[in-house]
Design a protein around this nucleic acid. Sequence first.
DNA 1: CATGAATGAGCTTTCATTCAT
DNA 2: TATGAATGAAAGCTCATTCAT
Lengths: 181, 181, 181, 181
Amino acid sequence: MVIGDARTRILDAAEELFAGGGYEATPTAVIAKLAEVPKGLLFHYFPKKIDVLVALVDERTLVEETREVDAVPGDPAGTLSRLARRLPLRASPAMRRILFREADTHGSVKDRLGRLNGELIRRSRFALELALPGARGENARLEVAAATFAAVLLYQENLCQLTGHQIDPDAVAELIAHSLV
Amino acid sequence: MVIGDARTRILDAAEELFAGGGYEATPTAVIAKLAEVPKGLLFHYFPKKIDVLVALVDERTLVEETREVDAVPGDPAGTLSRLARRLPLRASPAMRRILFREADTHGSVKDRLGRLNGELIRRSRFALELALPGARGENARLEVAAATFAAVLLYQENLCQLTGHQIDPDAVAELIAHSLV
Amino acid sequence: MVIGDARTRILDAAEELFAGGGYEATPTAVIAKLAEVPKGLLFHYFPKKIDVLVALVDERTLVEETREVDAVPGDPAGTLSRLARRLPLRASPAMRRILFREADTHGSVKDRLGRLNGELIRRSRFALELALPGARGENARLEVAAATFAAVLLYQENLCQLTGHQIDPDAVAELIAHSLV
Amino acid sequence: MVIGDARTRILDAAEELFAGGGYEATPTAVIAKLAEVPKGLLFHYFPKKIDVLVALVDERTLVEETREVDAVPGDPAGTLSRLARRLPLRASPAMRRILFREADTHGSVKDRLGRLNGELIRRSRFALELALPGARGENARLEVAAATFAAVLLYQENLCQLTGHQIDPDAVAELIAHSLV
DNA sequence: CATGAATGAGCTTTCATTCAT
DNA sequence: TATGAATGAAAGCTCATTCAT
């Protein structure tokens, strides 16, 4: 039973395969087969193989760049914790893997990842500002705290798969909050 | 002017190319050409392409697993800073890229990376214990602090290339130190 | 002037070349060239080289396994002679060579050859039973006679090419008939 | 523990490997490895790969071409049976396989096989003449009987491995003897 | 004699991409 | 829009053979 139209099925297949074996190691023929689509049709929708990856990133990842942060003044730890629970990244676990893994393969992927990182720092920073109204003046320290928290969140998204080590964001949130009092 | 024996030149070439374009995207013929070595000789030394990568990681990266840490009691920030300046990883910048980039390609690379991560955490933890003799009992907090610092260090090694954002380890060291008092 | 579709031409070429120089000594590139087909297309139809040989045996040899034998009661010699003239093997001379020569190369070839041998014995046996109604009880002698005749027929098909010696099946038919009276 | 000198070990290894996988499919490097001999030495003794096969056939197969036949007048069946038990071929089972399998590979192998066949026919013929003094005149029938018996003996040596069917030479001897009375 | 690094042509196979239908 | 046969460059790898030491 085939689900979705051809183009969607191609992207579904590519998402699964790129996440599994990587972009370079995935032949277009295999994508077409898994998508139950003739090889020719794949190149009808995506003239070059790289276009599949670009479309995937374009259409299946979204870095939410918004101003709203769910911050509670006086509770920096809780604020960061909540931020960690709702990363500004709309993407399946497979797409997340692709984002980190293929950042070298094409500029558009790197872009997305850079934007995610930037947004994470901005949010952390903004959240801390709101949660700690008294810390307004300490720009440098807030900056470092935000970057550290962002680094830990990205570590969770990516490196922990490679290193096998997990970090509890809530505990890090508390640590950072404690450092800013 | 040819430098070094054939095997070394092959590894030199591979190191450069894998770091540049990635393992999958680097044909063995190109490695051989850059090494000024006939294609056949490459397979004389490395029967499978993957063996080149494995040899590179085996022979050109070393995770120093030692007990010694340059810790100063009462100065956790300085202690962490010094630790950041001497990562327990003996490897060229190219090999460092390879280590992170190809962690999915072969188990042996992932292994190395995992070991590096483990060693970073262990050292950070140990350094903090020595620098903060009074914190002995707070296992959980020390653990989180160590993991956070390790995450930032790995971020510096890897993610900052992808995201274009740098973190100052010294500042993070101070932040963490401050959080533990 | 190209005759037949690509797949057929590939098999035609392979049949000729395998019969001539043997499977192992025939490069796929030479098959493709003789078939006037690009190398890639060969692997489109036959993903592995061995698949060409298997397809050849599957599609171009047929061991007829039937119950009908053209037997004349009272004339065992003539009956065997006629049997020798219509071997239960539908295959070109080239395919016959391949069948014997490559029996070690792949199980499917050996299989075919084994089936041919079995059918030859079965038919010889059945023919003799019909031609010599009085010999019903002498199972063992009929068995040996059938096996001997089959051996001679296969010798004619195969070994005589290697040894340069021919045997006249008619004369053997008479010899065997004479031995059974 | 290494047995025999280098040249002998090379031939031992080649005999085993050629019998197992065939001449074409056996790389010289594998022969050298099994012989525990450096690759270069193999080519010192045998400048071309084919020389190994030729030497094997030359030195490890012997077709005994003699006039003596252990014949008992009046007992053609027993005479043939004894002949079957002592084939005029001095060669290991492995060399026997090689002889049949590689007959296409080099003329010298085909030669040997042709000579074996000729000798088998000659002996069978001679044996029948001695065992049946009264059959002197019947040249044609003796010829056919001898060729048939030789065919069965070669079938036993070669084809039965491919077809999985065995023939009892003693029973064939009796059949032939019976046909000549 | 002994050694194994060196050589390069050639092998099977892969793959992105095209194109006639 | 849909199809899969067609294409050929290039990939990884093999292998007989050479040769300096």
